[in-house]
Design a protein around this nucleic acid. Sequence first.
DNA 1: TCCCAGGGCTTGT
DNA 2: ACAAGCCATGGG
Length: 298
Amino acid sequence: MGFAVRFEKEKAYLKTANFDLVQTFECGQAFRWVCCGDKYTGVVSSKVLNMRQTGDEICLWPCTEDEFYAFWMDYFDLERDYAALIESFRPDPVLYKAACFGSGIRILKQDIWETLISFIVSSNNSIHRIKGIIKRISEKYGSRISFGGEEYYAFPKPDQLSKATIEDLVKCGAGYRAEFILKAAIKVNEGYTLRSLYNLSIEEARKELIEFSGIGQKVAECICLYSLGHMNAFPVDTWIKKSMELYYIGSACSKKAIMEQAKRLYGVNAGIAQQYLFYYARENKINEIVKINVDIEV
DNA sequence: TCCCAGGGCTTGT
DNA sequence: ACAAGCCATGGG
């Protein structure tokens, strides 16, 4: 095991390498973790979890031993050796620098339904707005959870969201994506089994996902990576496109060319490489060609 | 004010 | 297969 954990009355104390709460929750993979002072609070699969990091120890509460091993261990991808992975990136100076910058990122294994809707919302949108839209959708259609004197809202189940109207989804800020959201909710509520996607290869999963309106190649890659556990999925958004053009290609090119290049360069862990690159690019606002010469020095 | 944001769809070549 | 326009919204 790459981690150590102990339990004290509804609290789990976790020690592991390569786990930083800020990096993990702010790297653009999840939209429902909220920072409040020195703690993060998230609503995940109808459960509220608090987390606080002090040095290399992370406290999770409320979290029993059973819940930890049955759910959170997988959710936080605790059995993967991220240190070895980063080390394997060392031959590529660009990627290695980005990986060191975001070395505390863990790829969360998130619920397929919530991930699907969330990344439909993400298209041509900003992370700040995505968070707000998903928050409002949860408050309007999700089940209320009272916890610790506060009110939280679970992400709405398919039957709850399928009762929404386009008009109300637009009021949540979804814009033209409202009809995509509703169509997906109805499709799932009427019997499409998202669970079956877990049994498919990445190629098959892509094909299935793209059948949803509002899901194209990029969003399908996000769902494959953040929910289905396909670490070779490689979402190409505007930041990744700019970074890859700057660092590896040298001029503007198609998204298809970027994906082919990524597959060649990064292989089976391309998705994790993508996360380091995305986080590095966005945090450092890598969008000017003049920065190449500075950033490329390792 | 314009530009951009974790893009996708439709239409035209 | 590929390109161009359009899409709703708000932050910078």
